[in-house]
Design a protein around this nucleic acid. Sequence first.
DNA 1: GTGGTCTAGACCACG
DNA 2: GTGGTCTAGACCACA
Lengths: 129, 129, 129, 129
Amino acid sequence: MISLNYRDSRPIYEQVKDGLRRLIVSGALRPDEKLPSVRALATQLAINPNTIQRAYLELESEGYIYSVAGRGSFVEERTAADKARRAQLSEQFRALAQELTALGATRESLIALLPPAGDAGDDKKEETT
Amino acid sequence: MISLNYRDSRPIYEQVKDGLRRLIVSGALRPDEKLPSVRALATQLAINPNTIQRAYLELESEGYIYSVAGRGSFVEERTAADKARRAQLSEQFRALAQELTALGATRESLIALLPPAGDAGDDKKEETT
Amino acid sequence: MISLNYRDSRPIYEQVKDGLRRLIVSGALRPDEKLPSVRALATQLAINPNTIQRAYLELESEGYIYSVAGRGSFVEERTAADKARRAQLSEQFRALAQELTALGATRESLIALLPPAGDAGDDKKEETT
Amino acid sequence: MISLNYRDSRPIYEQVKDGLRRLIVSGALRPDEKLPSVRALATQLAINPNTIQRAYLELESEGYIYSVAGRGSFVEERTAADKARRAQLSEQFRALAQELTALGATRESLIALLPPAGDAGDDKKEETT
DNA sequence: GTGGTCTAGACCACG
DNA sequence: GTGGTCTAGACCACA
């Protein structure tokens, strides 16, 4: 489900966050679906529950999931979180494209790196905002 | 010449590295041109010389500059470093584009974020990756 | 009658409490009227009877209802409970207004948030919600 | 500076957050002013550094402060965070006023609880958005 | 010395 | 059993 890379400089809780976010955004985890419990995921990944807890906490504050004490954590309806993240990633994208261009990459070479049109989502039809 | 942002979460030495790399890549600093001395730059930016030292060391190990004991640091010819960095950034770019697409961004919206053609601006015409 | 929101961070028993209190305060449930039995309400809301039990117990200790062993729970005359709660909420209200003012909200903007006059509703002529 | 109440049901890190937020919003701590270090505040309040750390972390993610590893934490310029919090508090305020009204409070009695006009800020002049 | 991350283990409220 | 909070103590990168 989620793969950790201990040699990666990124903190573990962020790798967990990214992994879960990917599952959510891609539709592999559907709204209101239950996530694995903090302890269960900690055991599965062989890391401390606090680390998972932190990942869940941040995903919640970012609007990707919601947690109910005593019941578990669940996937949130996708709304504002997506917009916020898209804005964030778009800025990264723009900056990256600019730097690559400064390094001599042509506009065409960048376009060639984009995913082909018409394969948007995974198993859901995505709208184009 | 180089602007530091103390609020940025990126460490200072990396901001220095990025600043210098930008100057080199953009051609503002030309091959074999002498960089400011560690102490001079430290004074100018009002930061610790250790921080500048680290930036220089890493730039050297990445192939952007070379140092001559007792004389200073100089801009390296641009060769392998560029290719390595472009490959790295291209992969980031590809991953970012994929994620944005999964989030519903259209191919057209991404293309719109690319820098306009015809401003590549270097000192050679470089071919695509 | 009572709506539960499982995403709400507030525990279920509190949502039940609030729902019942609202019904009582608004007059929808009249003094000495019988409340649904713990088990009945639990079934209706599809939650654990313990949760309802706890809500009833706390409402009783707060003076909103009274229980008669073997017969059920009933709505208390509204007296001390109201006063206590109003005092509590008033303090919250005062603190909130102060903080909003500190954040730059004008007195007028706060007044604009108050319910319109003329629907106050006391303990005499109350219509249901 | 900050007072903790262990009998309060609110978690300690939230009490710390509120205390600091109050100091920031009131202007007692000015933009770019340095906050006490995590360890220093932990010692002063006689609680675990992790608890302070969490408070700082959340204040940062809410836009009240920014942290620089190795240098400390500082008060952020006040912008979006204020707007978000005011919107949040305004909703609370509206709901509270409604409930008090349902409990029989008159519009006039609520207005009487508002801070007198013309004493807005602390030592800064606050604008009325 | 500073913030940031992680672990280990504990206790609590909730359902 | 679940999430939430807190403690104690450790190690790291950074300046």
